[in-house]
Nucleic acid binder design. Structure first.
Length: 820
RNA sequence: AGUUCCGUGGUGAAACGGUUAUCACGUAUCCUUGACAUGGAUGAGUCAGCAGUUCAACUCUGCUCGGGACUACCA
């Protein structure tokens, strides 16, 4: 879609830029490199930070760029000389600069909070990087003895008994009649025998579980909130790798091992009551695939709720518009419920935060170490040793700056001045939160203007059955293979013609194949033109064409151009693609080429000359309007046909042409006529080879046209003769059909299958009657005549009278053969 | 639970409230010479249900039934 837009706009003579590039995919990349190291029995710690980062760059050089390779193979006409990578020096500088700015504005802060912790990667991850999976777990019911009476208990239920060592309270709702008498008492945490209070909190739902909830503030997001409300101690029971720590009796054990041990112990103590199967949702790391732990650590946050204000307003005020517009609902929904954005990652691959700590942990945030040193020395009044923050930033932090960092910001470059704010971002709906929202926030904060005026949301490519592609399902398709098989043009055209306003695309081999055939069709049509010496004639103006078929095809070509233009302007890719497709195959190949044959095989030199020039003109036009969709085949043909002064990629896209309706009328009518004859021929089972003699009954004007196009019609309808019925009697061996106002009569020299003919005519009559009923119902309705627009009423009347005439003709024909 | 999208020929989709509801794939019949069988000609086959708004509903509103997507949560 990007490339269609960029080529289309470029051909309009606009200055265009498609800024290509990739982000550094912090977590995913570090994971892959660490996995490679593991094969050699190494960890990143064996290498040290500096050496490890070097290794990542090595790896990036070798295997990076798959996406860019695919883009190139697809024919993406981006400005490859401006390819950017989020870890490039320029972009990194932008990251540092905006970080410092946000920090000094109080929009970045450090806090000890519960975050999603990935114990495999040992880093915080964003909640967007956590996938929730349905699983059947177990619910454990057990009891804690009360402090003042160890024979009395409070019953609790949990799916994670091993976290009990982090319990610092048990909560009961104050409205819980059965349990509220316990509020204010203490109970004893078994195994470790710690005394914890029973508190009143509405988080405890009397309907759920036992009505009493163990509160583990350091390991559960809800409990964390409860803990804050009641000033409960927060006990961390896990090591960074999710093994239990010294705050528990099972230090060093995994959570699974500790769970088994805890249950055993509770059973021994006689406190275990029951274990039930329990469907639940468990969070997994999107990348690492391990269970994510809520974990209490020092992390850095962006005050997203504050940044969201402007980002929201800009969309609200239509400074940035989603196409299709429905996606703004998704955007608002997320922006309205936005949480502080945890931007720190305990990784090595990424932008290390520009934060330095003084000896007393005072924070210095500057763009580089020298400046931090100067500020720090001044602060302390002496030279001090600084320690740099080891955390790196979330990849999306740098991606969020893409719209301006890639244009050279913070320098005030020509590109920045020319292209910012950019016109359109094309992306998938699943990226709205990750990227679109972050770009909006960052851009509104730093640039005070939107990063792009439009955000086009395209569908996702799914497999033939409509399932999302995934490696685990094994239903992924490598675009390169499809391209090998059918060509990039076919794949592109398939995508464009399937792209209807954000709906998903089901990959369909047979359809891609169909578009490969379409390219072949164009190729063959061009060959026909070449064989007949249709070459562009420089000073030939199509406006001066005299032959009806030439005037007709030119008008049709202009009409199609306008259709494609309008549809692309409105991001209606499929309508645009289908318009070209219909024109090339359905109009140019199926009709025009056939219509030119009588001329090319005839002897009128002037007609041949004009038709050659026109055909060449239309072919050129096809190459132009098809080019954004199928750049390869069109460019190839463009260069082969004639020596050109311009490349097709820079050829002019015609705008503001006038469609001459008049020029279309005559041939449109001839085509209808030919189709009617063919249809009749097929219905009557007349051999395709049989030359027919056709009579017509029609108005003076129509007869004149038929006479003019006589040769054409005879050739295409395979007639030996076409003549007006005149005063001749309609004989009984004539079958008839109607085409617009004309009656077409074909005498059958052999035997007419009267039964078949009657059946055909009756069917026609049935349809006419059905339609007449509809027209009558409308026209007899006073409100319709009074309230509907005049045009609609007039049109309805016209249809009625036409149908009435046709009905009379069909009835006549039926009467004629009634006795056979 | 919240948000949201969608039910149209066999399949996948399209249609500012106004032709006989289009298109592609598939399918049926016919076509072996002249650009193309990766083709040509001609057919057959359809709006989930109910109610409402309107002169007029595939299109707008409500409900019912059915199918997805996203987000949150489940002691």
């Amino acid at each position: 879609m990007q490339d269609i837009l960029i080529r289309y706009n470029r051909m309009q003579g606009k200055k265009v830029l498609w800024q290509p590039g990739t982000d550094h995919a912090g977590i995913a990349t570090q994971m892959v490199v660490e996995r490679n190291l593991a094969k050699e029995g190494l960890t990143r710690h064996d290498l040290g930070r500096e050496k490890f980062i070097e290794t990542v760059w090595e790896w990036k050089k070798q295997s990076g760029g798959t996406i860019c390779k695919q883009l190139r193979r697809l024919g993406a006409s981006c400005d490859w000389s401006r390819e950017r990578f989020t870890m490039d020096e320029g972009l990194s500088r932008a990251v540092r600069k905006i970080f410092v700015s946000l920090y000094k504005d109080g929009l970045i802060y450090k806090a000890k909070k519960l975050v999603n912790w990935d114990p495999k990667l040992e880093t915080a991850v964003s909640d967007l990087e956590v996938v929730q999976k349905e699983t059947v777990g177990k619910m454990y019911y057990y009891k804690y003895p009360l402090e003042d009476n160890p024979n009395e208990f409070i019953h609790i239920a949990t799916t994670r008994p091993e976290t009990m060592f982090g319990d610092t309270a048990v909560a009961v709702s104050k409205d819980n009649e059965k349990l509220k008498h316990l509020i204010g008492k203490n109970c004893i945490l078994p195994i470790v025998n710690r005394v914890i209070p029973i508190i009143a909190d509405d988080h405890a739902d009397p309907e759920k579980g036992t009505g009493a909830v163990k509160i583990t503030p350091a390991h559960d997001f809800n409990d964390f909130e409860v803990g804050k409300r009641h000033n409960l101690p927060m006990i961390n029971i896990l090591n960074p790798d999710a093994t239990l720590n010294e705050n528990t009796p099972y230090a060093g054990m995994s959570t699974q091992e500790a769970r088994v041990k805890t249950i055993e112990e509770l059973e021994k103590l006689g406190l275990m009551e029951k274990i039930e199967e329990h469907p639940m949702v468990i969070p997994y790391g999107d990348r690492s695939g391990v269970v994510i732990e809520p974990y209490m650590t020092d992390q850095w946050f962006v005050d997203a709720p504050k940044l969201a204000v402007e980002a929201r307003r800009a969309v609200h005020d239509k400074e940035m518009e989603f196409v299709p517009a429905v996606y703004e609902k998704t955007y608002f929904e997320w922006m309205n419920n936005i949480q502080p954005w945890c931007i720190s990652r305990q990784l090595w691959w990424g932008h290390q935060m520009p934060i330095w700590y003084g000896p007393d942990e005072t924070i210095f945030c500057e763009e580089n170490e020298e400046e931090a040193q100067i500020v720090a020395d001044k602060h302390y009044g002496k030279h001090v040793e600084l320690r740099r923050e080891t955390d790196v930033l979330d990849t999306w932090f740098s991606s969020g700056l893409w719209a301006f960092s890639t244009l050279g910001w913070p320098e005030s470059t020509e590109y920045l001045k020319t292209f910012y704010p950019t016109s359109v971002l094309v992306t998938g709906f699943d990226i709205i939160f990750f990227w679109v929202a972050r770009m909006m926030m960052m851009s509104m904060y730093m640039m005070k203007r939107v990063p792009f005026k439009k955000c086009y949301i395209h569908g996702l490519v799914r497999d033939e059955q409509g399932r999302k592609m995934s490696k685990s399902k094994g239903n992924t398709v490598d675009p390169m293979e499809t391209i090998e098989k059918y060509g990039a043009d076919a794949l592109r055209f398939f995508m464009a013609s399937s792209e209807t306003q954000g709906r998903d695309i089901n990959l369909s081999d047979s359809r891609i194949q169909g578009y490969r055939n379409f390219a072949t069709k164009l190729w063959n049509a061009t060959r026909f033109c070449e064989m007949n010496e249709c070459y562009s004639v420089k000073d030939f103006d199509v406006k001066n064409a005299k032959l009806e078929i030439n005037k007709w095809i030119v008008a049709k070509a202009i009409e199609t151009t306008k259709e494609v233009t309008d549809n692309l302007n409105n991001y209606r890719f499929s309508d645009a693609a289908n318009a070209v497709y219909q024109f090339v195959w359905g109009t140019f190949c199926d009709w025009y080429i056939e219509l030119t044959k009588p001329i090319f095989y005839g002897e009128n030199a002037d007609d041949i000359k004009e038709t050659r020039a026109t055909a060449a003109w239309v072919l050129d036009r096809i190459l132009v309007i098809l080019h954004p969709f199928m750049p390869f085949v069109t460019a190839e043909l463009w260069n082969n046909l004639t020596t050109r002064s311009t490349k097709l990629i820079k050829a002019e896209w015609p705008l503001n042409e006038n469609i001459n309706e008049q020029n279309k009328a005559e041939i449109d009518w001839a085509i209808d006529f030919i189709s009617a004859v063919r249809s009749l021929r097929s219905a009557m089972n007349l051999p395709a080879g049989a030359k027919l003699h056709v009579y017509t009954k029609a108005s003076e004007a129509d007869l004149k046209t038929l006479d003019k196009q006589n040769k054409l019609i005879c050739t295409l309808a395979r007639l030996e003769a076409l003549e007006p019925l005149g005063n001749k009697e309609i004989s009984k061996d004539m079958v008839q059909t109607v085409c617009r106002d004309a009656t077409i009569l074909i005498p059958l020299k052999g035997v007419v299958d009267f039964a078949a003919e009657r059946e055909r005519l009756n069917k026609e009559l049935e349809t006419l009657n059905k339609n007449l009923e509809n027209y009558a119902r409308k026209l007899n309705n006073e409100s319709f005549v009074a309230k509907a627009p005049e045009k609609v009423v007039a049109e309805e009347k016209r249809r009625q009278s036409e149908a009435l005439e046709n009905k009379a003709k069909v009835e006549e024909a039926l009467a004629r053969i009634a006795n056979f």
